[in-house]
Design a protein around this nucleic acid. Sequence first.
RNA 1: CGGGGCGUAGCGCAGUCCGGUUAGCGCACCUGGUUUGGGACCAGGGGGCCGCAGGUUCGAAUCCUGCCGCCCCGACCA
Length: 491
Amino acid sequence: MGKELTSRSEDYSQWYNELVKKADLAEHSDVRGCMVIKPYGYSIWEKMQQTLDKMFKDTGHVNAYFPLFIPKSYLAKEASHVEGFAKECAIVTHYRLKNSEDGKSVVVDPDAKLEEELIVRPTSETVIWNSYKKWIQSYRDLPILINQWANVVRWEMRTRLFLRTAEFLWQEGHTAHSTADEAVKETLQMLDVYAEFAERHMAVPVVKGKKSEGEKFPGAIDTYCIEGLMQDGKALQAGTSHFLGQNFAKAFDVQFAGKDGKLDYVWGTSWGVSTRLMGALIMAHSDDDGLVLPPKLAPIHVVIVPIFKTDDEFNRISEKVNEISAELRKHNITVKFDSRDTHKPGFKFAEWELKGVPVRLAIGPRDLENGTVEVARRDTKEKKVMNIDSVAVDVLVLLDDIQKNIYQKAFKLREEMTTQVDTFDEFKKVMEEKGGFVLAHWDGTKETEAAIKEATKATIRCIPLDAPEEKGVCVFSGKPSSKRVLFAQAY
RNA sequence: CGGGGCGUAGCGCAGUCCGGUUAGCGCACCUGGUUUGGGACCAGGGGGCCGCAGGUUCGAAUCCUGCCGCCCCGACCA
């Protein structure tokens, strides 16, 4: 099948690109920067959606859907917002095609020009706040806690499957509140939801923090984020949560009457995670043999590979497999019986490893005789022979152990790849030789941030929320600083 | 959007410099047989607008021009 992967040490980005394609997650479409998410990749995304959606509902949010197209004038209403997105918007200018003169193709009908051009949403704050204006009159209408699952388009110059594509899938939460305090609480609550999802479900440890002025969302007062560290030592922003203040309420004139009868502008938040999480998942855990998926997000938990020579053997094994599968399914374990007789077991082993299935069972004639089954775990590649009667419970325990183990492994890597530095020479040395996260003092200015980026390619990923107060001096300017911030080269 | 590389069968590539029978190879695919506890083997077979569009030429995968796409490096971004 020719599915040997380039190793990570040889060429990390080539490894990533090949893995995405060979594990059947996604491929490039014919449209520049867009991707086809294939069924196996999409089923992982669906699992993410299901989990997140439940977490959103559990925190009081409801789903709705707002349009793909945004009138151009909406975008212009919030100054920093339009400035942030103007360079990467797709624009609809016409609504009709017609046959070309020679009849061989179709052309845009110049008579069908739109009066007001439409922007394909790069995010939905503007359309949503336009609706909120109609929905909100009094404090009794608040809060509004809405999420939507949607696609958005940002015309990126340089794209990579899942990590940065021109069109991507995401969820965007948009909430409206009567007080700043409540909106800030919401912003931080959703940051916690994201962090919990990343750590408990994706098994990716993340740092919660606040973005610097330069890195924050256009239109936000404060942007919070979760940052993960990939195996190549680069950081990946895995989710963002914004405190919008009254910026969009003012831009769209959304006011409410308080209990005292006075009018005030509504306070807002927005928060989102995208199919970029797929990239984080892949890069955090996978190895040179292919994907490594955390059981909580794996579309298939257990693959069963029969080993047989004759039809009779196959039939007897199948019978046993059906029993085991039924037992596993009782425990909510997803099982795939690879009964193909067109491939040898070794081939199947390699293929399912490439696809990251957490647990593999192999059953052959010897096992039938001995009442055993061979159990292999994807994360460590260990194999054990287990008693066939208790396999369901053993697998349940094993899946739990795999989930924990890959988190621990990622956590340990992050610990090893996080370095405290106190001089700029150290900073540069770490960035050049080791990579990863660097904790350093920063004077809080844009100029220093830019200068450090210029010199090292590292940006401020965030100001960690749990950063201890610590007197120090900025590694670059020598000016005083009260806490360390997190630097890294980033995706 | 700037610099570099690439585009030939589903995938990976040779052939391109120096134009000339019928465009090759490995994997995959189809048929038959032998196989099956870590990517099987033998035999036979099918599959090509040589990225697209022009041009030069008796003749173009090969030379020229334009365009499209992908990868890498920069600037920009989730």
